[in-house]
Amino acid sequence: MNLADSVFIGLAVVTVLGALGAVAFRALFYNALSLVLCLFGVAGLFIYLHAEFLAVMEVIIYIGAISVAIIFAIMLSRPMDKSDEPRSPSASLRGAVCAALVFAGLWRLLSGARWAQGSGQLPDMRDIGKALLTTDVLPFEAVSLVLLVAIIGALVLSSPRERS
């Protein structure tokens, strides 16, 4: 086993442990923090694959925005001394079924995938930016539309109700 392999295994262990912690801990705050650890491991894997831009975006968006929003919601909704409620078995079962379905779908997709051989030249940020605004402009704009709808939805939900 050379150094690259041990780095990869280390990152994979961090990612898997984080993912396990995200569902296994009883305290919600620990779940959220394990999710952060898991995402951090994924960012490490991106760096391992020389995709620094993706790694940085992973940290800024998934840790800096999404996980922080989750933690924020937990902090707003439950104080620290009220975190050890028993878990309902039916909810766990439903969660397990959903996770298994997603896993099966991904497994099918990945096992049937034919991976394109890279040219050896790693795309840098300039190439990513160009691709997003030329060849891949449709998915890019679709994503921005989804985000716009989400923003408007959040505004509608959080604006004070009119008394009529």
Partner: peptide
């Protein structure tokens, strides 16, 4: 910027 996010956590 990405490192700063870890500080916030």
């Amino acid at each position: 910027f990405s490192l700063a996010n870890i500080s916030f956590i």
